[in-house]
Design a binder for these strands. Structure first.
Lengths: 130, 130
DNA sequence: CCATAAGTTCGATGATTGTCAAACTTTGAT
DNA sequence: ATCAAAGTTTGACAATCATCGAACTTATGG
């Protein structure tokens, strides 16, 4: 039965305030495919996701780096549950400062591009896209 | 009186086809503030703009580099008029592959963010934003 | 108390990138 | 023909960044 200790650090990493979120930082964060994948998985998920539950092509230490970049850019919120670190997309907040941006990016990356009369059939791809 | 010579190169640099435009390349292009400034100036302009008419904080050779990155990403179209190279934003084309993305980015960058009850008044800034 | 699980921190490294100056090319005007 | 204007090309250089492995921290379970 874990009792929330009031002494010491609360193990809550620093998050930027909403109005401190800049387009520059957001784009620097989302230009990386791994980080876009994280954002897209959070966007499609119903709830928050712990770091280990993501499907990522990099080592743990690298993943930690990516999560920190996303958090410092203001795109995700992180908090601890036991030894697990949960991640939540700051969807509504970002929409207030950059209306439509997140949605347009996820839509752009989800592979639902009009393939046109090309030869390759757009078959049911189960990729998480972005 | 310049007659369009049909021999030799047409001095038309290579442009990617519409369906060859990728989100990755677009974001790599727009993550740079100078290139975002170029795109925003084109977005706000009524017509095409030659390279020298842009207000950019870098040298000519660096500007050339930025224009090439934008062109290869599929964001702009370039063509010669005399010694001048004209630049056109591929606005409609990009909207077909990434609906709403360009608009959301320009809106996000134009400084028209809800400044909230902060101390700094959002005064009439004549900056081109983005 | 000891072990395990989940992440983090700390260098180190290799690749990419934005920047500039100098030399070059192409076009238009004198 | 000569000259100037507008960009381009070509190195070179400094800075940034994504990646990994190894060691570390914190919490949970026997």
């Amino acid at each position: 039965m874990a009792v929330a200790r009031s002494s010491g650090q609360e193990r809550v990493p620093p998050h930027p305030d909403v109005q401190a979120i800049t387009l520059q930082k957001v784009l620097e964060a989302l230009v990386d495919p791994v980080r876009r994948s994280i954002v897209c998985q959070l966007y499609a998920a119903s709830g928050d996701i712990n770091c280990g539950a993501f499907d990522l092509p990099v080592e743990k230490s690298t993943a930690t780096h990516h999560f920190r970049v996303l958090r410092e850019a203001g795109l995700i919120r992180q908090y601890y549950v036991g030894t697990s670190r949960m991640n939540a997309l700051r969807h509504a907040e970002i929409d207030t400062v950059f209306p439509g941006l997140l949605g347009a990016l996820v839509t752009a990356g989800d592979g639902s591009r009009p393939a046109g009369p090309g030869p390759a059939a757009p078959g049911p791809d189960t990729q998480t896209g972005l």
